[in-house]
């Protein structure tokens, strides 16, 4: 399981569209070989077919697809956008944080969702992730979910 490790977090990323933002977050997972490139395409397809329902909290999007779309390891990446993007989800737009979820079909999936619940249930952690200039600023929150 890989959860927001330094090489899975990119800050101050410039993207112009939701699709571009999803691709950037997915690419972080693909670069570390946690997902196949097909998984990025599946996330984009899901966005096109199902709409922006995965903007799950104010300013926070959690794009994902199915395990069989090419997940090798349960994983989560983070893209902090330089400029907020409208995803078309009125109550929660605009989006500043895009967390790509590599959904696995084993117990690690539940564990990773539990970590996300702890992290994203913490408003201070979200605030810090939105404004952080360095990984070190958010590391304490990322490590905090281990307990």
């Amino acid at each position: 399981m890989k959860f927001l490790e330094p090489n899975l977090v990119a800050l101050n990323v410039k993207a112009n569209t939701p699709e571009e933002a999803i691709r950037r977050a997915g690419q972080l997972l693909a670069d570390q070989n946690h997902v196949d490139h097909s998984y990025i395409e599946a996330m984009v397809e899901s966005y096109k077919n199902n709409g922006p329902y995965f903007v799950l909290a104010p300013q926070v999007a959690l794009p994902h697809a199915r395990p069989e779309d090419g997940v090798k390891e349960a994983s989560v990446s983070l893209v902090q956008l330089a400029e907020p993007i409208e995803f078309g989800n009125k109550p929660n737009d605009p989006v500043k944080l895009v967390l790509a979820l590599g959904a696995s079909n084993n117990n690690e999936h539940l564990e990773i969702l539990r970590k996300l619940m702890v992290l994203l249930g913490n408003k201070e952690a979200i605030e810090k992730m939105i404004n952080a200039k360095t990984y070190e600023e958010i590391e304490i929150f990322i490590r905090g979910v281990e307990a």
Partner: peptide, 16 residues
């Protein structure tokens, strides 16, 4: 309920 039934709906279920 979520779009794929994989991640989001499970998060919602755990919180519910």
């Amino acid at each position: 309920v979520c779009g794929l039934g994989q991640g989001t709906s499970l998060i919602l279920r755990m919180n519910v």
